[in-house]
Amino acid sequence: MTLIKPGMLPGWLFGVALKVTIIAVALVIGAAIGETRIPFETVLEVLANKMLGQTYPVDAIDQGIIWNYRFSRAIVAASCGAGLAVSGLVLQTLLRNALADPYILGISAGASTGAVAVTIAGVGGGLISLSAGAFAGALVAFAFVIGLARMANGFAATSAGLIILAGVAGAQLFSALTSLIIARSANAEQARGIIFWLLGNLSGVRWPDVWLATPVAVGVVLIIILYGRALDAFTFGSDAAASLGIQVKRTQFILIGASALVTAVMVSLVGAIGFVGLVVPHAARFMVGPRHGRLIPVTAVTGAVFLITADITSRIVIPGQVLPIGVVTALVGAPAFAFILIVKSRRLR
């Protein structure tokens, strides 16, 4: 294996190579760890067979577990982590609020409502896909939250605390709507499945999910990277951004749309996973500072690695049982967040 050192490559290319390597390593670890013990060699052989056209003799069951179950799942976890983390970052920057994230602002709850409305209540008569329903729900929820915050603030600029309060109200409302739809329309079997899914769950994830999650996550991250300078310009608010030549409304429209899209797709695949969008951008800022050029890619990679790790943990922490991944992200995320806050405040002194 060749080691890449700084200086051998232009800075940005080294950065890209490093990030790709980190994600690749995390994916391989995701494929290697699980309840069934499979030798690491076998894992590498399976991946080589599938991706590099090699023909190592491997047990078919092992191959199935590693390729169809764990590896696809790790890729979806990575996409989901990167997507949610970056949309949290975008919301934090555009709303200039350290507490903003798709979960807290009720966007995830709205996406859940949309998804449930389509699958259980049959809205759209089968013409609307689960993801489209989730996307519509996400946008409605976000519009509701922003609208509420603005009205409460007399149509002036939205203030920091109000938007979070409005988000909490929105999240509660849409969770209640979801429960209402489930209670009215679902049978017991469906209800159990849905409630497990709502907590965030990667169990049923297979390759077809990869083909939806990964292009959306990669696409959205790339779009947001292109808007890195624009996001920097929002540091001192939207008037300052406009005075620096940023088309504020268009930028907000595209970036919030992209965040809602990625949140909706991830919610439709794996349910509402909290804490990623909130914690990961702060962790990334802690590592590389507030400039978005560096911050966005680092947030994406950290989110990907965080969710792969959370998924592995959710699979092995209770033998014989899979914990909803949302439970793990909160269990890991909350102390991690506390740690960051404490270290950050120490550094300030």
């Binding site: 350290a98 540091t235 001192f236 608010g237 008037d239 005075s243 800022r285 500072g289 507030p290």
Partner: peptide
């Protein structure tokens, strides 16, 4: 340069 342009980012 307008008044009250503030940030919480550690720029």
């Amino acid at each position: 340069v307008i008044q009250q342009m503030e940030t919480t980012d550690r720029l």
